[in-house]
């Protein structure tokens, strides 16, 4: 389900090579640089590798950075917040940051170690995009950041504390918000009540895309979204990756009109064929691109949630 980041801030991801490498590297600003070591004997020391990145590249030209293994893993180096924060005087034009580009072969999502990301936002006032993968140890106290346009949390269980911190933050430029809520078993204690300030449209005046995804109560979210004031000013909406079934989809069809949207992302869902056809017929002829791919079958051996499951949990 979760792959390595391929693009960030419109730039292709490229791993900064260990040691000295023969490959000619593109310009510092032409790629989203993945900082990642392998898990082999003879790997370059992590601090040496990081310092070499900062000196080998014109650090002031780096626009996007992706931090991967062994940072953010349980038995690895943990968070890299401190190093990134310290490098802010060198990475003066950093626009996008992805913290924790880890895939399951390296660490399960729920085993990843995150940290308080507020210092990063404070250190990089020009940052336009921040993505965070993993939620163990994650903190997001309320902040003010005038430049941030995209904020994404990819995790298997998003704590309500983080959601409240985001919604209490002052992010006047925020256009794109994705929250992967996840499973209670993996740390999600967020409720619909926690999301109320978001749904009532009082937060984030520039918001155009909202993703409330990967949730075990995706039907309830759909029902709430069907009447949420925030939807009227969105261009796109994602209710993907979760346990959405016919009940939630029915609520969407019976709620406020969605035909003003450019796209509705429902991929990874549990809809019946008949419901998919109804959704398509209601929205596509009106010009809304609906992603209905990734239909899942409920696991009949599981009682929880009727055997439905989110796309990313453990």
């Amino acid at each position: 389900m979760i792959d390595h980041v391929q693009h960030l801030n419109g730039l292709p991801a490229l791993t900064f090579p260990q040691f000295t490498h023969s490959a000619r590297l593109p310009a510092a600003g032409a790629a989203a640089w993945r900082i990642e070591l392998e898990d082999r004997d003879g790997d370059e020391a992590s601090d040496v590798y990081w310092e070499r990145f900062l000196t080998a590249m014109p650090a002031e030209d780096v626009r996007a950075l992706i931090i991967g293994y062994p940072w953010y893993t349980e038995h690895g180096l943990g968070s890299m917040t401190e190093e990134i924060t310290e490098a802010s005087s060198r990475l003066v034009n950093l626009e996008a940051l992805f913290l924790g580009d880890i895939v399951s072969e390296q660490s399960e999502l729920s085993w990843m170690e995150q940290s308080d990301v507020a210092p990063v936002l404070e250190a990089y006032p020009r940052l336009r995009e921040l993505a965070v993968r993993g939620s163990s140890g994650l903190a997001f106290p309320a902040v003010r950041h005038e430049a941030l346009r995209t904020l994404r949390f990819e995790c298997g269980g998003l704590p309500a504390e983080v959601v409240r911190g985001v919604l209490d933050s002052d992010l006047p430029a925020l256009e794109h918000l994705e929250l992967w809520l996840g499973d209670e078993y993996y740390g999600c204690d967020t409720t619909l009540e926690d999301l109320a300030p978001l749904l009532d449209g009082t937060r984030f005046p520039a918001l155009r895309h909202l993703g409330l995804q990967n949730s075990t109560f995706q039907d309830d979210i759909a029902a709430a979204v069907a009447h949420a004031p925030v939807v009227a000013r969105l261009e796109s909406l994602s209710l993907s990756l979760g346990t959405l079934g016919d009940t939630g989809a029915e609520a969407l069809l019976n709620g406020q009109p969605l035909t003003h949207l450019r796209s509705l992302d429902l991929h990874h869902h549990f809809l019946s064929d008949a419901m998919m056809l109804r959704i398509w017929e209601a929205l596509e002829p009106a010009g809304v691109r609906v992603d209905l791919s990734g239909r899942e079958d409920a696991d009949e051996d599981e009682d929880d949630d009727g055997g439905r499951y989110v796309a990313a949990a453990e």
Partner: peptide
């Protein structure tokens, strides 16, 4: 399946 005979409308540009 009873597939709809209507075609999708063109997508709209981003605001």
């Amino acid at each position: 399946a009873a597939y709809p005979a209507r075609r999708p409308a063109p997508g709209r540009p981003r605001r």
